[in-house]
Design a protein around this nucleic acid. Structure first.
Lengths: 150, 150
DNA sequence: GGATTTTTGTTGCGTTTGCAACAAAAATCC
DNA sequence: GGATTTTTGTTGCAAACGCAACAAAAATCC
C-alpha cells in the first residue's frame, strides 16, 4: 500500500517551519500560532479540549497557553459553575494578530494547492478529513496508555 | 478555499506522537525513527540531504544523527574523495530495529487509510506528493532566509 | 590559479516538548 | 450520600528543536 505518512510528515514539518519563522515578527514563539487561532475561533474553549484539537500533549498545551497569556495574547477566565476549568479568550492584542496568522495560513494553503483543480482540492480535503478521523482514535487510545496490537 | 493545513498538521502530530511512544521500547528517543529508516533505505546519504528529505533544521538533524551514532544505531564513514562529507550507514543494531519501525509505520498507514478504496488511496497519495512538491520550494526559500511576498 | 561563494558540519544558548507524578474539582457508581 | 473514577490543571525534569555564529572543505567565478 502507498505510504502517505511520510508525505504528510514532510508537508506538516515544512509548513510549521515556515509559519514559525514568519510569525517571529509578531513575537509568537514556536507553535503558539496553533493555539491562538483556535482560541480566537472557539472563544471559551478549555485547555484540555484545545490539546485534543491540536493533537498535542496536555502539558505542552498547558505551557504554550501559559506563555500566550504571559505575553498578553490571550486571557483565562474562571467559569461560573465549574471551579475546575479555565475558559480561554483572545485579548485585544490576540485579536489584532489573528488576521496576520490567518492570512499567512491561507497563503501557505494556496501554495500547497498550486495547480490543483477545484475538484482536486475538494477531493484531498475530504480524504484528509477521513484519514484524520481514522487516526485520531488511535492517538487517543495510545495517549491514554493503551497498547495497539499489530 | 478548503483548509488542508490543519488536517495535515493534526494527522502528522498524531502519527508522530504514536510512533514516539511505541518506539521507546527500542530505546529510540523522540524523532529518531525518522532518520533511521531513511538512512537504512538510503545508505551512504549525508546529513545535509537527510535534513532536506525530512524537512527539519540542519542542526536538529546533526544532533539526532549524533545521538543515533552514540547509541549504536548508525555509523558515520569518511568519504574517499571528499573530506567534508560523512556518509551515514545503519549498524547491525540499526538494521535489526528497522523491521519494527517499518511494521509500525505500515500499520499506522493502514489505520489512517481505513475504509479507503484502492482508488482513493492512489488518489490521496498522488495529491499529497504534488502538495509536498509545491510547498517544499517555499520551505527551502524561507529556510535560506528569504522572505515570501503575500 | 587565486578570490569568492556555496556546501557541509559543529557548538552555544534559549526555548519548546512530553512523560511522570501530583492535586483538586466534577462526574459516576452503588 | 459516600466511595471511586474521570476530568482538568500544574510542576520537575530530561530531552529535542532551531537560530546564530563559526569553521573548513569544495565548487564556482573571472
Amino acid at each position: 500500500m502507498e505510504d502517505i505518512l511520510r508525505e504528510i510528515g514532510m508537508i506538516a514539518r515544512a509548513l510549521d517551519s515556515i509559519s514559525n519563522i514568519e510569525f517571529k515578527e509578531y513575537d509568537l514563539t514556536k507553535g503558539q500560532y496553533l493555539y491562538l487561532v483556535r482560541i480566537y475561533e472557539n472563544p471559551g474553549i478549555i485547555q484540555e479540549k484545545l490539546a485534543g484539537m491540536i493533537k498535542v500533549d496536555r502539558t505542552t498545551a498547558a505551557r504554550a497557553i501559559k506563555n500566550l497569556e504571559m505575553n498578553g495574547f490571550i486571557k483565562k477566565k474562571e467559569d461560573q459553575h465549574n471551579k475546575k476549568i479555565k475558559k480561554l479568550f483572545p485579548t485585544e492584542k490576540g485579536e489584532n494578530v489573528y488576521p496576520f496568522i490567518k492570512r499567512e495560513n491561507e497563503y501557505s494553503n494556496t501554495v500547497a494547492l498550486q495547480r490543483f483543480s477545484e475538484k482536486e482540492v475538494e477531493t484531498i480535503s475530504n480524504l484528509l478529513q477521513r484519514a484524520r478521523k481514522n487516526i485520531e482514535k488511535d492517538w487517543e487510545f495510545v495517549k491514554k496508555g493503551n497498547k495497539r496490537n499489530y
